[in-house]
Design a protein around this nucleic acid. Sequence first.
DNA 1: CGTACTTTTGAATCGCATCAAATCTGGTGG
DNA 2: CCACCAGATTTGATGCGATTCAAAAGTACG
Lengths: 210, 210
Amino acid sequence: MKKVNDTLDWPALIAAQPAAGLIPEPLREMAKRVDAEASETLFRVGDPVLHVYLVISGEARLTRLGRNGREVILQRSRGGFIAEASLDSRTYHCDAIAAEPTTLLLFPTAAFRVALGAEPSFCKAWQSQLAREVRKLRAQCERLSLPSAADRINHYIESEGTDGAVTINQSRKSWAAELGLSHEALYRALRRMQDEGVLEVDGNRLISKP
Amino acid sequence: MKKVNDTLDWPALIAAQPAAGLIPEPLREMAKRVDAEASETLFRVGDPVLHVYLVISGEARLTRLGRNGREVILQRSRGGFIAEASLDSRTYHCDAIAAEPTTLLLFPTAAFRVALGAEPSFCKAWQSQLAREVRKLRAQCERLSLPSAADRINHYIESEGTDGAVTINQSRKSWAAELGLSHEALYRALRRMQDEGVLEVDGNRLISKP
DNA sequence: CGTACTTTTGAATCGCATCAAATCTGGTGG
DNA sequence: CCACCAGATTTGATGCGATTCAAAAGTACG
């Protein structure tokens, strides 16, 4: 986890990552930039919550290992904050890894909390952030409650895509994990849906056909 | 949905529902008490978000009906706020019903937002509330990712219970829905686990045995 | 060019969903 | 108090779909 000491170009950053625009000035100056390699660990279960993480580029994931060794993906972030809900915890309740070469900004939690108390607009934005996460997770629960692979795929297209189409920005294998399926089941479901003519697959683009 | 115009006994209320203690004084005076019957609708998808709901007694549920008519339970609240994440939405994205005779307090959303901006401590408490909800939902997602009924039951006991035991405060049937299982599958899994000696069932109390 | 990983297909098995039906339960009204 | 009803609980039988184990083909990367 390489720490980089550049002067950050905030205007450009905000253009790329709107979530960064929430950060008030005094907090910005405390940001540390970090470049993580693929599959590098950012923190682990039980680690003290020292920083708030903002993903600039690449992808960070929250995961937890089940008893059976199955990896469950709890959150996937390609831009924006990760582990927002840990801000008022003392320690993490899951692991975080970089899924690919990833650049992040780290803000000291203490200063972050101070800024939340001092800046009402920041506080408000942070609440929206949490509320968005809640809605996203509810959609995820709804999806995982569906019994069949095809239903989960359709639900994904409807809730994550637009106009009946979605672009998968991850490997099929990890998408399968996100859908709570074995990767084989996902491949076969995609194949079956194509054969039935209800789905068009073009690389990473999925188009549902009525 | 009967509106009651009592003078509210806040100290007693807060004793019963700690979440009510978050509410600052000016907002308290705007609370409307409502008594809902079992299976009565509180709001529906698309309704404008006019109030914030606090469950005093009974049980309120957020649900959504899937294509196949299956009811998915998105949130279950026996005390505390419900649909917190809707505060910064214009309309609801799910239905809410009272699962049993339920008493609620309603706060006008506009005033609620004002209070959040005016009272830093209230704002902070609300954030913790949202963060708690996020963690709860992540646990739920993790559970629903488990392939077998027995695993989900064990996960439930571990994450919702204490010392390897938990008390189910709902019917088996609706618990099955929460676990993403058919109720038959749940009954059979419970039976099997008892036969295998890994679980003790005493009415609504489940004790996992190593 | 070799290695590690993903993608894809195959076959066997297991467990869940589903349909059916019997029993049990709490609550309602005669 | 009892008959009755709606809903929850429980058990049975069946079929399908997901998991699992296995293995081949494709792909990215050093």
